[in-house]
Amino acid sequence: MRALWRYLVAAVVLLLGRGRRPPRVERAERIVPAGEPSPRAELLVLALFGATAACAVAFVVVYAVESIPHQTQFLGLSLGLAFAFLAAALIVIASRLVVTEELEEDYPVPAHPAEQEALGQLVEESGDRMTRKRLLLVGGGAAGAALGAALVTPALSLGPAFEIAPFFRTPWRRGVRLVDEDGRPLHAHDVLEETFYTAYPEGADREQLGAPIVVVRLRPAELHLPAGRDGWAPHGIVAYSKICTHAGCAVALYRKPTFPTVEPRPALVCPCHYSTFDPARGAKVLFGPAGRPLPQLPLFVGPSGELRAAGNLSGPVGPAWWGVRNRRPS
């Protein structure tokens, strides 16, 4: 037993001792210049390290103890302060405990003309055996281009790419009932003046640009709809696509003038870029960047007073693109 113990101790001593005897190199002159020690700075650094550790521990405690209120704030505070103290410690080290040297070094040589020449020569000589270099280059280029095109072709599977019909599709048809957010049919007598309503086509997917519409009631005498829209606004109730024709946001604001002298007419306003539309004039653009009026939905009042679409919207919904003026929605 005792012998074993001795062997063990000897082995440990040998193992540990091995690394400790590097080949002795004669110390040349110093690389980093000597400086005065600064015990006070060391003390400061120690204190800052202590503060870092304390804050880090505090972070763990805040994390672990459920009953501490304002978890996020205290977590952020403790972790942030821990890093702040660490930063302070490192800055004290940098400014007081490490020698500040100012070294000079040559900038790298701007260029290596001989090497450049050799590289060019190397490439040229490598192609010496080829007699029709230009033709080969063109051939290689063509092959590369064709292969590149082939490799990017599968990207077309990302979407339909050439199918433009979906941009014209809306769920509105003649006879479709207008329903509110909870799916209840919207009745003509529910629609009051001086406010606006969001409505959807009954039974359709609401998360498509063609679905949501805004409904407002104006006095029939105020209405000056474009030609050909007679009877689209029963009792002065007009409906427009809720999607801004500028950048696709929801036209979520209804400006009902409280100061008549400034902005005399009610308007539908998009909160993204403040495109402003006149609901009395077919949602003509009054202000802002939109390039087209909001498409209008023709309405009629059904037998039990409910509002129904009298057809599809007057134009494609949503932001403009190259074909947006080509046809009517379907």
Partner: peptide, 19 residues
């Protein structure tokens, strides 16, 4: 140490803001 100090300072500010 300067650079590490800056890294700690940036991290400190970000966590303080985040919290």
């Amino acid at each position: 140490p300067r650079s590490l100090g800056l890294m700690s300072a940036v991290t400190a500010v970000l966590f303080l803001l985040g919290g």
